[in-house]
Design a binder for these strands. Structure first.
Lengths: 154, 154
DNA sequence: TAATAAAGTTAGACATATCTAACATTAATT
DNA sequence: AATTAATGTTAGATATGTCTAACTTTATTA
């Protein structure tokens, strides 16, 4: 199976995300979600249909096939994990983390993705709760230097 | 000034990077560097010339203008810093870090970039040298769990 | 239910970015 | 210096992805 373009991946993901909170997904919803016009959606959906990722009866709602659902889920999963890393580890604002995740999700390698996930996991399962060194990083960002008492942390 | 497309940014960066190790930059060099054919380079260079970022006399060498140099430098600087973060902090292989940096450099926000740089800096200037917690992260990646003696670290 | 509004579709234009094939210029070599 | 090789350019094709304007279908409502 040919790799999807970033654009088609976006459309697939949009359908998925909209379906998480809506009973049905319309062409118009996707257009609004991605900030494009409806003919662009119709075009893209046509291509996704040809590939067996979306089902679309003329003038009807959009539905993901099992195959489409699986791919969309994977893409969105990447999105969420990149978001989490940027936001929770690096301290990037929620809105920027969201935007960056939207772009990066299409390009990042499996290897970097794995490491990013591991890092979040590493922090989440830190034996003594939220790590002191991450607090220190926040201090460093704020004050431009390491806190003084770093050697006394427990 | 209109934002450059990813593609044009790539061409500009390529000219810059090649010029770091070569006296002159030829159309052919850029084509090889970016793995495209020469007409694509000629096209792109035409656009970059129109914008005053590159100087190109017919059948001659390629040169960056001051403006072009500055932009290229910024892009490549981002590249290096993303690379460093992926490679040194997350432990992504050099080749993958390079590829990912190539893509991500075009999309990442200023804010996330700043945080990424700060994080690398935070680690580089860590008071006691290479941080124990980063060693612990490597352990975590390798063994899937935190090391036992984490509370005894100094 | 007939008229109107909303949503969806089609056709065709346009921009970007790439390519191949043919041609032009410059550099190297005999 | 003439020939050949290397490099650069042009023209035209193709693919992607978007748009506007015109039209069609479906849904709403008066």
């Amino acid at each position: 199976m040919e790799k999807l373009t970033q654009s088609l991946e976006d459309y697939l993901e949009a359908i998925y995300v909209i379906s998480l909170t809506s009973k049905v997904v319309r062409v118009k919803d996707v257009a609004e979600f991605l900030d494009v016009k409806t003919p662009s959606v119709v075009d893209a959906v046509g291509k996704l249909s040809e590939r067996g990722l979306v089902v679309h009866e003329k003038y009807g709602y959009l539905e993901l096939t099992d195959k489409g659902y699986k791919i969309a889920e994977e893409v969105y999963d990447k999105h969420k994990k990149i978001y989490k890393f940027l936001n929770e580890i690096l301290g990037v604002s929620t809105s920027t983390s969201k935007k960056d995740a939207c772009n990066i999700e299409h390009y990042i390698s499996k290897e970097a993705m794995t490491k990013m996930i591991k890092f979040s996991e590493f922090v989440d399962t830190y034996p003594e709760g939220y790590p002191q060194w991450l607090k220190d990083f926040n201090y460093y960002v704020k004050h431009g230097r390491h806190p003084e008492n770093i050697s006394m942390e427990k």
